[in-house]
């Protein structure tokens, strides 16, 4: 579904991704783990069309998407849950969700949109209770849920999530991840999950990659990574 070959991304003259190659198959949950500043967000932003300067190839459903504008990439079916949530804080929960449908919104498909809204509220009942509340007044966990729900409103085929667990209480993280797994089971949505919390990420994924200073240093099936000495030591805190 997604096939990345020798992707390089630069900020000014700094090379933040040094030839990254990876692939994601349809229906998989693939995770990417790595420490602070290793280039995780840079990779996701490059896929979403938000990075300033990139070279290499990124094929989505056999189509080159590198260099396309973010609005086209969203239309093709890739949706990003960005780092730091990036909501429209002075707008209501409802407005944020409706803006999520921007890529295909028209007067004609209002029915579809309202049923998709219903579906999102079913997935995240808290958001349904707070439809009219401003996004900026939600708690951190609710904001993260809204960010995920907004991304889902665009009918993605591939959902990419940038550290959805960061800064949240364990119980809320558990809630969000349960929802993601439920979502996967119900819709067979493909997900690319970036996490610093390696235990959590390896728990839900089928395959994973490890990134360090802009390079993929390891890749493998879930069990392989979980038992890898390097991963155990650096990311799972075990000797």
């Amino acid at each position: 579904m997604l096939n990345i070959r020798s992707l390089k991304t630069y900020y000014e003259s700094i090379c933040a991704l040094k030839s990254v190659s990876l692939h994601i198959k349809k229906g998989e949950i693939v995770t990417l783990i790595g420490g602070n500043g290793s280039g995780k967000s840079t990779l996701l932003n490059s896929i979403a069309g938000l990075a300033p300067r990139t070279t290499g190839t990124v094929l989505f459903e056999n189509r080159e998407i590198l260099g396309l504008s973010p609005s086209i990439i969203v239309r093709l079916g890739i949706s990003l849950v960005p780092e730091g949530r990036q909501l429209f804080y002075p707008m209501t929960v409802m407005d944020n969700l409706v803006l999520g449908t921007y890529s295909y919104y028209s007067f004609g498909n209002r029915k579809e949109i309202s049923s998709r809204l219903e579906w999102a509220f079913e997935l995240f009942p808290v958001l349904g209770d707070r439809k009219r509340q401003l996004a900026g007044t939600l708690s951190g966990g609710e904001q993260q849920m809204l960010s995920i729900a907004r991304a889902l409103m665009s009918k993605p085929k591939l959902l990419i999530l940038d550290e959805p667990s960061v800064g949240l209480a364990p119980k809320i993280v558990e809630n969000i991840f349960r929802t993601l797994i439920e979502l996967k089971e119900r819709t067979d949505l493909t997900m690319f999950l970036v996490e610093q919390n390696a235990k959590l990420a390896l728990d839900v994924c089928q395959r994973g990659y490890v990134i360090e200073t802009g390079q993929i240093i390891l890749s493998g099936e879930k069990e392989e990574l979980m038992n890898n000495r390097e991963v155990l030591r650096a990311y799972l805190g075990k000797e």
């Binding site: 938000l50 609005s71 969203v74 909501l87 429209f88 804080y89 707008m91 991304a151």
Partner: peptide, 17 residues
């Protein structure tokens, strides 16, 4: 709404397409 959204957060506006 989209215009308003742009004024609040350009990056997020890009992200939703």
């Amino acid at each position: 709404r989209a215009m308003k959204a742009c004024s609040y957060n350009k990056r997020a506006a890009n992200i939703v397409g």
